[in-house]
């Protein structure tokens, strides 16, 4: 039986997106390309846009429009807000604990 990890992936994706915005602001397509380099991270590229909009509404990321070098419309750049930084730090700590616990449980079940 195939395991449906869609919901789990969706829940974790937002923190992966936030982690990508930690160092410097990035625009949507750039984020899609970076996350696309990791196999299995983005099942459909478009889902990142509703996710970014929600992170923005929740104050976890800030949006800034910057003109492009080409003649196109300005790009929307996303950067992690102070609230976003705190949420990401907290998640990293929780994730490390959870990952260890799950690994131990799964390995224990196999014995």
């Amino acid at each position: 039986m195939a395991v449906d990890v869609t919901q789990m992936r969706k829940g974790l994706l937002e923190f992966c997106v936030m982690a990508q915005l930690e160092g410097e602001p990035r625009y949507g397509y750039e984020l899609v390309q970076r996350l696309g380099e990791v196999d299995g991270m983005l099942t459909s590229e478009g889902t990142i846009y509703p996710l970014l909009a929600r992170l923005h509404r929740e104050g976890l990321v800030a949006v800034e429009r910057r003109p492009t070098t080409s003649a196109g419309p300005p790009r929307k750049y996303y950067r992690l807000s102070a609230t976003g930084h705190r949420a990401l730090t907290s998640f990293r700590r929780e994730w490390a604990t959870l990952r260890t616990a799950i690994d131990r449980t799964l390995q224990g079940g196999a014995r």
Partner: peptide, 9 residues
């Protein structure tokens, strides 16, 4: 957003 994505791609 999706229109901009398509233009970038």
């Amino acid at each position: 957003d999706v229109r901009a994505h398509i233009a970038e791609a």
